[in-house]
Design a protein around this nucleic acid. Structure first.
Lengths: 220, 220
DNA sequence: ACAGGGAAGTGGTCTGACCACTTAAGCAGA
DNA sequence: TCTGCTTAAGTGGTCAGACCACTTCCCTGT
């Protein structure tokens, strides 16, 4: 039971060893790392094992490899990028509430951004949603929100939103109910009028209503 | 220029192919994936290449491998998490501007959140900043912003902010200059008064000034 | 002095061979 | 028949060696 080699995954040890080597040598971003063959000999493992570790680090953006030249230390920041979020989400149960809150932050910012821009608030898509609802055609909550994020034009914000959406407990994948239509309509009207305060106010009311629906159905 | 094989990294293609296979087979979390040898034959590559891709996915938490048993699909959400952000940032040069914009979204949301909460806006830290500036002591821009995010209480937003801050070109790691003090002071005053509009207005002015400083120094 | 070519070094890939481990089928004994 | 053990097959883990493609740089011949 008491294995002397706790990590059954050698390549994970290599990843760790590589980080140690990087630190010991005081390698800076852009510096060249020892070649795969040298690393294999120094760490007393096969070259393929070293490569598995290096490929992992490469996918994380920690290192950069150039055929014929060597392996180089890449922008270290990319690592945190991965680690921070993946370590955070799905960890603390309380964090789900932060996920929802952060998601609303991005949605609100998108509304604000659109309302402030005459060109964006004149987009035909808003009228399209209004007409659809008037005709009684089904409109998915998420579609409206997504169009807001898309129209706002901040692609990073959009990607973060997509990410958060997956973890969110807010049931935005369903249709807009009759009871919500008033809020959504007034939100879009405010948006097209350039009144961000009005739009955001109704957006808040709408989301609160959707959240109330969720809590009402939480037993099934 | 227009190489027909843009990816000089075969193992990255494998990573993509693996995702395709996973989707095609409709594999669910916990399902067993084909063995490395089978994958190698199906994808027409060597087993070591398959392994490099699998090791990367494992480090990302996408898959889980058990010696003697096989490879299993782990929590799928973790993947996107990684991919989205790491693929995005530092890719398109235009994205830096989105990084700054997104950062401001989170800072603004924090201000709004604090101003709306009597307890938060009464925190002694705001008075502390004001006094420091009055006494002529140096105050780092980032410290003020960080306290805003911390006080707002959304830990996810805070982590995202930390992340974005590293990529941001806005020089917030420096001291608040004499010219900025007026904006910061009025921002904090507005914050403590619960007037989010006032606070955000001065925050915007402040950041615009900081950005102007950056642009002014862009040649050196 | 210059330009060309080749050697050395590097990452990229494949092959085949073991090892350690898990599982399950099959066999022997009760 | 049922139980228990042995054994074989399958899997991931690792290694060694061999090529290939590419980059760099030095050396040679003109």
């Amino acid at each position: 039971m008491e294995k002397s080699s706790p990590s059954s995954k050698r390549f994970l040890d290599i990843v760790h060893d590589l980080r140690t080597i990087i630190k010991e040598e005081g390698a800076v971003i852009g510096d060249k790392l020892p070649s795969e063959r040298v690393l294999a000999e120094r760490l007393q493992v096969g070259r393929s094992t070293v490569r598995e570790a290096l490929r992992s680090l490469e996918l994380l953006g920690l290192i950069e490899t150039r055929r014929g030249e060597g392996t180089f230390l890449a922008d270290y920041k990319k690592h945190q990028l991965v680690e921070i979020l993946s370590a955070f989400i799905m960890q603390h149960p309380q964090s789900l509430q932060h996920v929802d809150a952060t998601r609303r932050i991005h949605e609100t910012a998108a509304i604000e951004s659109i309302a402030a821009d005459a060109e964006l608030r004149g987009l035909p898509v808003w009228q399209g949603f209004l007409r659809k609802m008037e005709l009684g055609e089904p409109v998915i909550r998420e579609d409206v929100l997504k169009e807001l994020l898309v129209a706002a034009g901040n692609r990073l914000s959009l990607k973060i939103w997509f990410l958060l959406k997956q973890y969110s407990r807010v049931p935005t994948q369903y249709e807009i109910t009759a009871g919500e239509q008033g809020y959504v309509t007034r939100m879009l009207d405010g948006l097209m009028d350039g009144s961000s305060v009005t739009a955001i106010g109704h957006y808040d009311d709408w989301l609160d209503l959707v959240n109330a629906e969720r809590r009402g159905e939480h037993e099934c």
